[in-house]
Design a protein around this nucleic acid. Structure first.
Lengths: 330, 330
DNA sequence: TTGTAAGCGTTATCAT
DNA sequence: ATGATAACGCTTACAA
């Protein structure tokens, strides 16, 4: 492994001071004269001394890394939902000099994989964890964090959680979309879900003010390809379809892509609305209408909460407003 | 902070064995009877014992986390180039039970921010680092890693690096695009760069077989918006433009989006080619032609190399082939 | 203000 | 196969 670095003992020895003094120079805590501190700091950069982080963490019983756990729902391509959240996470984290440890786990993962994640939570490698809801694993990790008293924040909905979450109202967002379709007199709706996420479907139905059997529903997984495939299904089962809500933006893009290849006009023939409003949506052609979740803000909120939580302050659940961003696709 | 967990000492005490035995049960290394190991493992899950990672790392002088350092070149939105690489990184890393620590740093960042990154490298928090080239900071971090003998791998080109890198030939990729435009008889080319990346520009010129003054060149930063803005510039300065190469895909998408809003037909009026071939490109409408870099494969390669490197094996630089993926936009 | 020394929770080297 | 015990490199009472 890497060449052994200079330790505090060796470093202190060279300077003719004690290790305690060196430590004080680097930590605001202890008292130390400005002069010696400056001297030590200078020498440190000169000799390349840098405290070993493991020793430090062990001694302090603390760490400045935050764990980020999320289910991987599409093994083909990056998850833009997650990436947008992570973008917010990193932005905020940098300002407080904390660093992110990322821990993806397959949506349907083995007990073993999950255990690895649990270890990471239990082993003290992180001072707090941020967990994205949406799979069985998320629940398990939430429970480990909770029972081990590791500070945690959940992004999304999880059964039996009341505090420490930042949530968004998918049902409401979807109802906005249904509402809109109803107002522009579209009457042959389809819903393309990723998995069984009843909230979006239900919201859509509510907004549409139709009964469930008047709407074509299919669940096809997430991602561009899923959206393209879903188009085939929809057009076959319900050729008269004139509006569709997709469970996320990549699905919508894939759908539109396939539809246009079939000479179907968007939005004239079919109006489509996506979900999440990831960045590319506004530059898609046609501009993709989408239920905006302000994902990077969610990430920043999550950091805000975990910091509080690590600080022992109470963390009531935050509810993020979501709204419908209308662009050309609808 | 989190409620103190059970330590090896306490745990061993309860079982009536020594700490050494407990340690052996969890580590393949030492000899131990299958029976006691099983007993200890069972009791561990029962009592919730889990080794403290800091103590472990300190004792072992080792860690299983890999640092990932990259410059943030667009503060508005996630960087899909990076995300795609990270996707590959995570995929490969999971199979070897290593975890990723992500460390974004602003492209033009303060000495202070950079120092924080250097600390992370020097403090032993990572067993190896993967650094994305592309900014001054990258160079600095590369040098710290090298001089501290921390295993490293560079993604991209860095002055004075010979080994330990996974590189892609931007110049060649761009020349492919130029080549193609020449073959389809486009004669009013524009190049939209992010920053001054002379390789792509030069390659484009070479492929086009024109001199630099016959091509409109603008550098506008990365991202969708930059691409849309660049369109305005290009169309104003060179209304006869009929083909353009963009330094990355989001720029190209933004460009196309703006162009179509101006009733310009893609590819009839202007053929456009992007760079990187991120996932969304193939579902963009029109399908975006792009110089493919196989980013997630690059990520996987980088992991492969860092593992070797950490293992003391030599790591000759890998060159990733790039090729032109033609879709509807050109 | 500075030094001494006792932890922090493991692993690993000796013995046994 | 198992048990003592000395590291690992730092922080932090406590003493000086």
């Amino acid at each position: 492994m890497s060449q052994r670095k200079i330790t505090i003992k060796e470093f202190a020895g060279k300077l003719g001071v004690s290790t305690a003094t060196v430590s004080r120079a680097f930590n605001t805590r202890g008292r130390i004269s400005a002069k010696t501190r400056q001297y030590i700091l200078n020498k440190a950069t000169e000799l390349g001394y840098c405290a070993n982080v493991h020793a430090k963490n062990l001694s302090r019983q603390d760490t400045s890394t935050i764990g980020f756990f999320y289910p991987v729902i599409n093994s083909e391509e990056p998850d833009y939902f997650i990436d947008e959240i992570m973008f917010g996470l990193n932005n905020r984290l940098q300002k407080v000099a904390k660093t992110l440890q990322v821990n993806p786990f397959p949506e349907f993962c083995s007990e073993e994989t999950l255990n690895l994640c649990r270890q990471k939570i239990l082993s003290g490698s992180t001072g707090g964890v941020i967990i994205v809801a949406g799979s069985k694993g998320s629940k398990v990790l939430f429970e480990t964090a909770k029972s081990a008293a590791v500070p945690y924040v959940i992004i999304g909905h999880l059964l039996g959680i009341e505090n420490n979450a930042v949530q968004f109202d998918n049902e409401h967002g979807a109802s906005l979309a249904g509402n809109y379709f109803r107002k522009i007199n579209r009457s042959h709706p389809a819903y393309i879900g990723g998995h069984l996420d009843s909230a979006k479907k239900q919201g859509f139905i509510n907004g549409l003010k139709v009964s469930e059997d008047q709407i074509f529903i299919t669940h096809c997984g997430y991602g561009f390809r899923a959206g393209a495939d879903a188009f085939q299904k929809v057009i076959k089962s319900m050729p008269e379809v004139d509006c569709v809500l997709c469970a996320n933006d990549p699905i919508a893009m894939g759908f539109i892509s396939a539809a246009q290849a079939h000479n179907i006009k968007i939005p004239e023939d079919i109006a489509v609305i996506g979900f999440d409003d990831i960045r590319p949506s506004r530059f898609f052609v046609p501009g993709l209408s989408s239920v905006s979740l302000r994902l990077s803000m969610i990430g920043m909120q999550a950091v805000e909460m975990i910091l509080k939580n690590m600080n022992g302050e109470p963390c009531p659940t935050q509810h993020i407003e979501c709204d419908l961003v209308l662009r050309e696709s609808s």
